[in-house]
């Protein structure tokens, strides 16, 4: 599927089949979650990252069914199509943003998602304790969402942020790697 077709589908589904919610509500809710996690883990930002990823994973497991129900998509033929679907339809339908797909490796198993805007991180300033700037990935929930939803469609991936404007970098970029394709499960006793 071409990028244009995916963009068209994403736009159409966004306009017609999605209930909308106030963006600030989402931003502030997500902000309180992260702030509370930071307080609970007493500044152990590595652990906060892990928890955010875990929460995202649980969200992704369910979100994929909702996505399939709303968009009527079938299985993607290859990983490139998966990347276009994620960026032009997935993110569009749920967050109304379209990150760009960049930096493909030659074997087609790794790509980057570059976020021009990130509604989860509006108004956010990382705490000034010297460590948050280097250790906390604020939007790590999104990495978990990708991992969980792709696992349910037979793809094991690794997703992690490599740069974030909240940390002072120029862009917010997430790196997604296909580790392996998960085979269908066979019923017991059949090989």
């Amino acid at each position: 599927m071409s990028a244009n077709k995916a963009a068209r589908i994403g736009e159409e589904v966004w306009k017609t089949r999605i209930d909308k919610v106030n963006a600030e509500l989402v931003t502030l809710t997500y902000g309180s979650i992260v702030a509370q996690l930071c307080k609970d883990y007493e500044g152990d930002y590595i652990e906060v990252n892990k928890q955010l990823e875990k929460m995202g994973y649980n969200i992704g497991l369910r979100l994929i069914e909702d996505f399939l129900a709303k968009t009527n998509m079938g299985k993607c033929i290859n990983f490139k199509e998966t990347a276009e679907t994620i960026s032009k339809i997935g993110f569009k339908v749920f967050l109304n943003i379209t990150p760009t797909v960049t930096n493909w490796t030659t074997d087609g198993k790794q790509f980057s998602l570059t976020f021009e805007e990130n509604p989860l991180a509006d108004f956010v300033e990382l705490p000034d304790d010297g460590r948050a700037q280097n250790e906390l990935w604020y939007s790590n929930l999104l990495c978990g969402v990708l991992r969980g939803s792709l696992e349910m469609v037979q793809m094991q991936v690794d997703a992690h942020f490599v740069s974030d404007v909240l940390r002072g970098n120029e862009v917010t970029e997430m790196r997604v790697t296909l580790i392996r394709t998960i085979d269908d499960e066979l019923p017991p006793g059949e090989d």
């Binding site: 994929i64 069914e65 399939l68 998509m73 079938g74 299985k75 349910m152 469609v153 037979q154 269908d184 499960e185």
Partner: peptide, 14 residues
């Protein structure tokens, strides 16, 4: 002869 079976599978193997 006795029945018809209809099948639908989602991309999540449901």
């Amino acid at each position: 002869g006795a029945y018809k079976l209809h099948y639908y599978e989602t991309p999540t193997n449901l």
